[in-house]
């Protein structure tokens, strides 16, 4: 059974389709990267999967239709790591990560022993032990990103949705974050769906790439097949050359 399955999903907003008849499926343990120009509908696709936006068509998580699921059950299946999270500045890192336990608590309950242990493990997983008492407002961009991912991990959902996880990070932190996600995927058997901006990083980390434009899928497959110079030129209006590092494509912008 697919971890994620979309069937002719369409999202309308402001009189136009942001997502237009998208069908795709993601296998358990797979890393799918969604690529496309700004405004192509990448984030909206993740919202559909997180159940935070209305849509037409059919979307299922592990064979269960999102529309039929209770809000809390969706949150137990998918954890969303947003691109620009709303940051409560005075909240400590530990408190923030504990919020990830929300779908496992009844509305009026407080966190129990188990929840605290799981949150502590998520903190440790992202090397945030030292920072657990710090306020979110005092963190650097990379530290904050790790805190948001830790909250996603504390959610203990089998499917992790990442919205541009490397945005606003320097190259070292970009690698750290993606390596970490990949390690979690292998060790915890997570399924990863990531909207990505950087074509080369997407090629390095994704098993499969879906290229979207104007709300539609225009190409789908392994990175080496999807990322061709002609396709990127027509899609992004960019002059690029695709080199190969072993079998992994590397997208390099060129001047004409």
């Amino acid at each position: 059974m697919s971890a994620v399955a979309l069937e002719s999903v369409t999202v309308h907003a402001g009189g136009k389709s942001i997502v237009d008849g998208v069908s795709l499926s993601v296998q358990p343990g797979e890393w799918l990267s969604i690529l496309g120009p700004n405004g192509a509908g990448k984030t909206t696709l993740l919202r559909v999967l997180a159940g935070t936006i209305g849509f037409r068509g059919e979307a299922a998580l592990r064979g269960r239709r999102i529309r039929r699921l209770h809000r809390r059950d969706v949150a137990r299946l998918v954890a969303l790591v947003p691109q620009t999270p709303v940051v409560p500045h005075a909240m400590t890192v530990a408190e923030y990560v504990l919020l990830g336990r929300t779908p496992h608590l009844s509305l009026l309950a407080q966190e129990g022993e188990d929840d605290r242990t799981i949150a502590a493990a998520a903190l440790a997983r992202l090397d945030l032990e030292e920072l657990s008492g710090r306020e979110l407002g005092s963190l650097s961009g990379g530290e904050l990103r790790r805190a948001v991912i830790a909250r996603g991990l504390a959610q203990a959902a089998p499917i992790l949705l990442l919205d541009e996880p490397t945005a606003a990070l320097d190259i070292g932190h970009q690698q750290q974050v993606l390596e970490l996600v990949d390690r979690l995927r292998r060790e915890e058997g997570l399924t990863v769906v990531a909207a990505m901006h950087d074509l080369t990083l997407a090629a390095q980390y994704g098993d499969r790439i879906v290229l979207v434009d104007d709300g539609r899928i225009v190409a789908e497959g392994p990175p080496a097949e999807v990322l061709t110079a002609e396709r990127l030129a027509s899609l992004y209006g960019a002059q690029v050359r695709v080199l190969f590092d072993g079998t992994t494509p590397v997208v390099v912008p060129v001047r004409t």
Binding site: T52, E95, P103, Q155
Partner: peptide, 17 residues
């Protein structure tokens, strides 16, 4: 506790169930 969850904004609170 719900009010603490709302501190992360509507969309993320929704995504937290």
């Amino acid at each position: 506790r719900t009010l603490d969850v709302l501190a992360v904004g509507d969309e993320e609170a929704l995504a937290l169930g």
